[in-house]
Design a protein around this nucleic acid. Structure first.
Length: 653
DNA sequence: TACGGGAATATTTTT
DNA sequence: TATTCCCGTA
């Protein structure tokens, strides 16, 4: 008789050996979060408690557990945060992490809608219009309605803000107007009718604005079970970062794609800074109610900053009118408290920053480890000049973008029409560049094009007189459409055609044309016009190369950033400029407690970006032209905290 | 109906 | 202060 031999069976878990010693390098709470690979979880993570680190390790862990990287979906709030996370994960593990699907809610919706657009009555080559395009459309439709209103009718920006708020907060136009714009209550019917027109216009011309990406994504998920199922199958593990900043619509999307239960969200209610965009901080608090058996994990130990920096940030938060149950602690200590430096005026402030940056550089701190943060994009204008003079390479994030400059949008409009001939926004934009074409001619031309089912390869015939410049446009578009030339060559041709139009429109022609050239350079990366236009509509390059040539871009650079764009990031040395009451908080935030609280949280976010050295500056004398007052006091958020700060002043020269 | 001049008005943060 | 928008003129 054959003897039976017993062989031990190892459990799946034990059999696996990990290349990363998770338990050693993570603290207990982080370890719990990282190894929680099944079922819903909410991770409450204060600033600097290793939130990104935890998410990064969790990605690595999932991959090591055998989850295919491409089935992991990582939703973040800014493009930069998504990139950062994936880079860190692949540094930690290996190239496999590169395949993780990551991006913003908008870019995720964009990719999905490209495939399923037809199910919503859109063509797959729909164009995405940014905020200013959207405002232009609203303006176009507004003229019909505004005329018959004797009294003031809201301007295009206000109208679009109302529409957008209604989408993102899930409220009706009526609720928004009553609550925020009572002065326009008598225009309510017209505003509502206008929104209807705006929606129809977008449908007719195959356009989506940023809000539509989320709205249509949600509609798609709710109305189409097949799509929802296939997405859930494809993305078996979903993670969402910065959950406190999601709005109702985003939360609803998460509920749909996370219905399989493998959903982990991370956030910190004290860092909610996007309520102007409809962020709903209840989302994070209510999350455990929306998913059954949700585990809640709290990360409390801060590994980023010195305890001196944390003392200050805790104190800032403590004085908020909303209570936050948070007291971060750290075991890192420093001789130095955060610095508060006042300078004579704003010019001196810029000079001081340039000088301090150079000093830190001398001491061996790489420029990559330093950042200058500010409340609003334009606060850095003067500093940018000063840094250029001092030959300090920098990159600016947030604020004005390359893509948003009129001339770049003009060139792109030509390219977009080639991709989506129905794109009336781009057509309109192009037509207005031509001699003797105003809104009326443009409208007539576009109507005729739409009626004749025009496509870029055809030359249309008009039964009315069109200016000669317009007659040249269509053969030009046709030649481009038929051309088999490389993308960069097509863009050059467009640039050549556009050149005289730009020259006529602006005095600073040369400076602007440099941007057009930069666009040609960038286009070399793309193999088709479609991919270029698609990528540019959401994930456009941020660099505003206006005055710095691309060849000058160094590997090591100082970061300049709005606080909003700096979220989730950290640096050894952080400068916060314009810590001046009236600028930060801005005078506009004085009215309501809610807006002041949001500014306070913004200050909290800024302060907690610093690991080792935090230096805040403000000018002692600054004339605010809007309010015609002299601002001279430090921000109320840090005023009165002498014991937590090292205070300095720079004497006037 | 295109376009320029002058009066009115809101003013930040991002996708 | 810069932008937008309204209105008069060509």
């Amino acid at each position: 008789m054959k003897k039976l031999k017993l062989k031990p069976i190892r459990s799946h878990q034990e059999a696996r050996t990990y290349s990363i010693p998770y338990e050693e390098v993570l603290n207990a709470a982080q370890y719990e979060a990282v190894t929680h690979t099944n079922g819903p979880a909410l991770i409450i993570a204060g600033a600097g408690t290793g939130k990104t680190r935890t998410l990064t390790y969790r990605v690595a862990r999932l991959i090591e557990d055998g989850v295919a990287p491409e089935s992991i979906l990582l939703l973040t709030f800014t493009k930069k945060a998504a990139r950062e996370m994936i880079v860190r994960a692949s540094r930690l593990l290996d190239g496999r992490a590169e395949k993780v699907a990551g991006g913003t809610f908008h870019s995720f919706a964009h990719t999905t809608l490209r495939i399923h657009a037809d199910k919503l009555g859109f063509n797959r080559n729909f164009s995405i219009i940014d905020q200013s395009d959207a405002e232009d459309v609203v303006n176009l439709l507004r003229s019909d309605v505004a005329g018959k209103n004797k009294r003031r009718f809201p301007r295009k920006k206000t109208l679009f803000t109302i529409f957008s708020a209604s989408v993102n907060r899930g409220l009706t136009i009526e609720q928004i107007v009553e609550d925020q714009y009572p002065q326009f209550e008598k225009n309510l019917e017209d505003i509502e009718a206008l929104r209807e027109k705006y929606t129809l216009y977008k449908q007719k011309h195959n356009l989506m604005d940023y809000d539509d990406l989320l709205l249509n994504m949600h509609t798609l998920l709710v109305s189409n079970a097949d799509v929802r199922k296939s997405l859930m199958k494809r993305y078996s593990h979903v993670m969402v970062d910065e959950y406190q900043d999601t709005n109702k619509l985003q939360h609803a999307i998460v509920k749909q794609i996370g219905a399989h239960g493998n959903i982990v969200v991370v956030g910190d209610d004290a860092q909610s800074i996007y309520s102007f965009r409809g962020a709903h901080h209840r989302n994070i608090i209510d999350f455990p109610n929306d998913f059954e058996n949700c585990t809640v994990i709290t990360l409390e130990e801060n590994y980023r900053s010195t305890s001196e920096i944390l003392d200050l940030s805790n104190e800032i938060l403590k004085r908020a009118s909303t209570r936050y149950d948070k007291e971060l602690f750290s075991h890192i200590h420093s001789e130095q408290k955060p610095m508060l430096v006042s300078t004579e005026n704003d010019t001196e402030q810029s000079k001081l920053i340039a000088q301090l940056v150079l000093e830190q550089r001398e001491e061996g701190v790489s420029l990559d480890e330093m950042a200058v943060l500010f409340r609003s994009g334009f606060h850095s204008f003067e500093l940018e000049i000063e840094l250029a003079n001092a030959n300090i390479p920098f990159q600016k994030f947030g604020g004005f973008k390359f893509m948003e400059t009129a001339h770049v949008k003009d060139v792109l409009a030509y390219l977009r029409v080639l991709v989506n001939p129905q794109d009336a926004v781009s057509l309109h934009r192009i037509l207005l560049l031509h001699e003797r074409v105003g809104p009326e001619t443009s409208r007539k031309v576009i109507d005729a094009l739409m009626a004749s089912r025009w496509e870029a390869a055809k030359i249309p015939k008009f039964d009315f007189r069109v200016p000669p410049s317009v007659q040249e446009l269509f053969p030009f578009l046709q030649s481009l459409n038929k051309s088999k030339a490389a993308v960069a060559d097509l863009v050059s041709e467009v640039a050549g055609y556009y050149r005289p139009q730009l020259k006529k429109k602006h005095d600073d022609f040369n400076r602007r044309y440099a941007d057009v050239n930069a666009l040609i350079d960038m286009s070399e990366r793309y193999s088709t016009l479609h991919t270029m236009v698609r990528e540019f509509s959401l994930d456009a390059p941020v660099e505003s190369v206006a005055d710095i040539g691309p060849e000058q871009q160094e590997d090591e650079f100082l970061t300049l950033s709005t606080i909003h764009s700096a979220k989730g990031l950290e640096w050894e040395v952080v400068f916060i400029i314009w810590v001046l009451d009236g600028r930060f908080p801005s005078t506009r935030a004085f009215d309501t407690q809610d807006s002041l609280d949001e500014e306070r949280r913004l200050m909290y976010v800024a302060v907690t970006r610093a690991k080792r050295i935090l230096c805040m500056t403000y000018p002692r004398h600054f004339l605010d032209r809007e309010t015609r007052t002299v601002l001279s006091k430090p921000s109320r958020f840090i005023d009165d905290m002498e014991d937590l700060l090292d205070m300095y002043m720079v004497e006037p020269e």
